[in-house]
């Protein structure tokens, strides 16, 4: 499945000459496990009150969200990614795409919105969980830490933050031990290989210790930006670049 979704991400980007491929591949394993094994989803009833909520706070990884929503049947086959009148832009729009919970793109917005959603679910007595996926670069934003404080203070144990720690931001601002930082902010911390699907599933399906201690949970996932395509892996040149015909053919062969 990962190869199929990788191919889909590459195809969408190649056809439109748009999208952030490495950012999408960085979180593909995590998101597939979430949608396939962990979250309660209702593809034909995407606003079902009982659904678990997923917020792609690092919205520039939209390609992977679209590929998974398509695979799971939330949306029809995408033919117009990033075209002028498409529903499927370079960043996801909750008012256009079924299954998208927040219109993200500006970093540091989706995660605090997820905290609000978790708080709203708590007020309603709704037992659904909220998963927010943030980037390590996104953790440069102050609003991430504002939201982290709020979530811990209000004991939002229905919230899981997943950090895509591909260290792409190290060149700008080293944030070092993110787990220690979240721990200091009052979160229950787990750190794993973000491409080990079995481990991701195990951690997310095991009753979270954060719940036992009335804490929100953070999963620091060590990842490789551009995972699976050698020329893209940890190569900043590819951050917002689509393959030309020759590169596309090489990539398809590699997949």
């Amino acid at each position: 499945m990962i190869k199929k979704l990788t191919r889909r991400i590459i195809d969408l980007s190649y056809e439109s000459q748009e999208g952030h491929i490495p950012s999408a591949l960085s979180v593909l394993d995590i998101m597939w496990v979430l949608y396939d094994k962990v979250m309660k989803i209702y593809p034909k009833d995407p606003d079902n009150e009982d659904r678990d909520r997923f917020i792609l706070s690092k919205g520039h990884a939209a390609l992977v969200l679209y590929a998974i929503l398509e695979e799971k049947g939330f949306i029809e086959k995408i033919t117009d990614f990033a075209k002028y009148d498409s529903n499927y832009g370079g960043h996801p729009d909750m008012n256009k795409v079924a299954g998208v919970e927040a219109s993200t793109g500006s970093l540091g917005h989706g995660f605090p919105m997820a905290v609000g959603i978790a708080l709203g679910l708590r007020i309603k007595g709704n037992k659904a969980r909220v998963y927010a996926l943030v980037g390590d670069g996104e953790c440069n934003e102050g609003s991430i830490w504002e939201a982290a404080m709020i979530a811990a203070h209000h004991k939002l144990d229905n919230l899981t933050c997943i950090v895509d720690y591909n260290r792409s931001t190290d060149r700008a601002l080293k944030i070092d031990d993110l787990g220690e930082k979240f721990k200091a902010f009052g979160w229950w911390v787990n750190e794993i290989d973000g491409h080990d699907q079995k481990m991701i599933e195990h951690i997310l399906k095991t009753p979270l210790k954060g719940e036992l201690y009335d804490k929100p949970t953070v999963l620091i996932c060590n990842t490789i930006k551009g995972k699976g395509i050698k020329k893209m892996e940890n190569n900043p040149e590819w951050h917002h670049k689509s393959p030309d015909k020759k590169e596309y053919e090489e990539i398809i062969k590699e997949i």
Binding site: H109, M113, V115, G116, I117, G120, S143
Partner: peptide, 21 residues
Amino acid sequence: FNIGICEQATISLAAGLAKEG
């Protein structure tokens, strides 16, 4: 809620609450 002195996250949080109705 006295959510604290963190206006940026607070506006996003309010949006999340609104999303939940």
